[in-house]
Design a protein around this nucleic acid. Structure first.
Length: 645
RNA sequence: GCCGAUGUAGCUCAGGGGUAGAGCACUUCCUUGGUAAGGAAGAGGUCAUGGGUUCAAUUCCCAUCAUCGGCUCCA
């Protein structure tokens, strides 16, 4: 007998060789039906793999990530089997489960291309194969044996992978006619894969290396129930409606022009106002928090970037320097603000008593992004950072970090942004020579970040090896409507620039000392932030940010005079007001202005004109009843105060 | 930059070797209306751009550009 410890710390005795599936059925028949994978002593296993010793065990259903993982991983094998049958001779790369579904990278050979038209065929074959309920059979093999099998198949990608694996750890999984190199775990059989959608096809470099072969990546998703797939597809459709590129056009916020150039956003009046309001909001808070605003030009001498080191590292992949009539004089469009800010720091002498210096700028920068990478407002070639740099003494670093985390939390809370994650990026301890700055400083900085985050109650993920070469960092990430991850705010420690720009301050000992420099952005860039804001609000901005707050809808021409009076009245309260005086019926005006997502609609007719009132309607919520003019103005002001408090 | 797809009116899209069509938006007229689409008429397009095939190309072919889905990169 062996002892099995369950997550609730209860211990049950089973005979040696018991499987996860059998444990599940000993607990409940329902669990037995739903269990997909099992964690045994921290390792995820198939549910039909015998457990030979005392273990702690966790059973996973589809609702758990571990369960989904097995489900989708098996689905990837199913898809590969379908592809192998439909496109004989296809070579296979990797086919993992991902956050939403799975993909498989395949190479169908030089003469064959798999296009969107083939996806329904693959899907159909997958459904046929799933219906066969083929078991996924685990088979440990020697490396030699594995190489022989995949050499025979001509699967060169697989043999490349195998040759990097340690002998004795290699397993194959067989399902139907398909055999794959795979660590597992898998479902017992394909029968539980009831709902299948092959989603899309894309190119992907083998092992993510652009020098290597471009493979065909096919994405799919599956569910145990058709209803779940329907809901997922519906959710995707809904998400598309929130796409900031679509809403940006519909709400007349921004546009792009081929003539101006790709990736160069043009802010339309309503978008520009929204953007400005964010700037004003942030500026007011920065002043309260001891920042000084600075302003620097859009270009800088090439020598500036040679000093900073950016020219050497990124110069070739940047917009190329501008020349002037003067021989040998070259300027670069600024790709970041920090070198300029360093020179501002250098412009005046500093005592330790002045530190920390906090220097902020809404600085527009220009980066040459590759064509294929441009994406709406989230990836552009010209954008405005809410950039700032803190210059402080080493001992002040942690406090500065905390103050910045506090600011991020304050801003995100003010905007009802709850769905963000924070990632701390540290050095790769195995590759310390990749980084500049000494060990002691790095240790100090990494410790300061971790402690600051924990003291601010910020939940973080720590990733080793993701730090910049010049220092560790803390990034704030959010997801867009389709679930893609974007970085917004960032806090980075920099040991490079203070050194290169020879920044210093006079310490208590009357000696020169080098300050620590922190880079930070809260919005990240206004462009990306607005994009994320559009998608998270579906274009229904909070009242204080809405380009138009109130629209007045007179029932007929007879009430245009009263509409003007209402409009003037609200304007005196700085409430952004529009009138819809088109010759249309009130139902039509309501519909059109609801679709424009203007927060408040005021309907005025005979009753209102006589009584000096307005009939209030909240976007998306309907009739709110009649209010006195002043009452309404106060009501609006209160809402704004609540939002920005 | 790479793989695949797409490009027709301001927007969403249909069409197709013989110089273009719908709905919405727009303009004018009728209607002056009470909480999500009143009616009529009209205007609007070198069918992304440049080549080629053809008696004839917006349609077929090639290239370029842009957009979309990914990959790579991201100070």
């Amino acid at each position: 007998m062996i002892k099995i410890t369950l997550p609730d710390n209860s211990v049950r005795e089973y005979s040696k060789g018991i499987t996860g599936a059998e444990i599940a059925s000993s607990i409940s028949p329902r669990l037995a039906k739903e269990v997909l994978s099992v964690t045994v002593n921290g390792e995820i296993w198939d549910i039909n793999r015998p457990i030979e010793e005392d273990s702690s065990v966790r059973l996973h259903k589809f609702e758990d990530n571990e369960g989904k993982h097995a489900f989708w991983h098996s689905s990837a094998h199913l898809m590969a089997e379908a592809i192998e049958q439909l496109f004989p001779g296809t070579k296979f790369g990797i086919g993992p489960a991902i956050e939403n579904g799975f993909y498989y990278d395949v190479d169908p050979g030089e003469t064959v291309t798999i296009t969107e038209l083939d996806l329904p065929l693959i899907e159909k074959r997958m459904k046929e194969l799933a219906a066969l309920s083929q078991p996924f059979l685990r088979e440990p093999v020697s490396r030699e044996e594995a190489l022989r099998i995949f050499n025979e198949k001509g699967d060169s990608y697989k043999t490349e992978l195998i040759s990097e694996l340690e002998d004795g750890t290699i397993t194959l999984y067989r399902s139907g006619e398909f055999t794959d190199l795979c660590r597992g775990p898998h479902l017992p059989d394909s029968g539980s894969i009831k709902a299948i959608k092959v989603l899309s096809v894309a190119g992907a470099y083998w092992r993510g290396d652009e020098k290597r072969k471009m493979m065909t990546r096919i994405y799919g998703i599956t569910f145990p129930k058709q209803k779940m797939l329907d809901e997922y597809l519906e959710m995707l459709e809904e998400a598309k409606k929130r796409d900031h590129r679509k809403l940006g056009r519909e709400l007349e916020l921004f546009t792009f022009s081929q003539k101006v150039g790709m990736g160069l956003p043009l802010w339309l009046p309503k978008g520009a106002e929204l953007r400005q309001r964010l700037i004003d909001f942030m500026t007011a808070e920065l002043k309260r928090r001891g920042y000084s605003m600075v302003s620097t030009p859009h270009i800088g001498n090439v020598d500036l970037y040679k000093t900073s080191g950016h020219y050497e590292k990124y110069g070739a992949d940047s917009f190329q320097p501008l020349k002037t009539p003067q021989e040998g004089e070259e300027f670069m469009l600024k790709p970041m603000n920090c070198p300029h800010h360093c020179e501002i720091f250098n412009a005046t002498p500093h005592s330790y008593k002045d530190l920390p210096v906090r220097m902020a700028e809404f600085g527009t920068v220009y980066r040459y992004e590759q064509h294929g990478e441009l994406h709406g407002l989230t990836r552009v070639r010209s954008f405005t950072q809410d950039d700032a740099h803190h210059f402080c003494e080493p001992d002040q670093m942690k406090e500065e970090f905390k103050s910045i985390i506090d600011l991020v939390q304050w801003v995100f809370n003010s905007l009802n942004f709850n769905e963000y994650t924070a990632q701390i990026s540290l050095r790769d301890p195995a590759n310390k020579e990749k980084y500049i700055g000494n060990d002691e400083n790095w240790d100090k900085a990494e410790k300061a970040i971790i402690e600051a985050a924990s003291e601010k109650g910020l939940e973080t993920v720590i990733v080793k090896g993701e730090a910049a070469f010049y220092g560790p960092k803390l990034d704030f990430m959010v997801r867009d409507a389709i679930g893609r991850k974007w970085q917004l705010g960032t806090i980075q420690v920099d040991y490079n620039l203070p050194e290169r720009f020879d920044l210093h301050y006079i310490g208590r000992d009357n000696q020169k000392h080098q300050p620590v420099m922190l880079h930070r952005a809260i919005f990240g860039s206004l462009e990306r932030f607005v994009a994320v804001l559009i998608e998270s609000t579906a274009g229904k901005f909070p009242l204080w940010l809405a380009p138009e707050q109130v629209v007045i809808l007179p029932i007929s021409e007879k009430f245009h005079d009263y509409a003007k009076k209402v409009s003037n009245f609200l304007n005196n309260y700085d409430i952004r007001t529009l009138k819809d005086e088109r010759n249309e019926k009130i139902g039509k005006k309501i519909r059109d202005n609801e679709l424009k997502k203007i927060p408040y609609l005021l309907i005025i007719g005979e009753k209102e004109a006589e009584a000096g009132t307005v009939s209030v309607r909240r976007q998306g919520e309907g009739d709110r009843g009649v209010m006195e003019l002043e009452e309404f103005a106060r009501f609006i002001k209160d809402e704004i105060t609540r939002e920005t408090a």
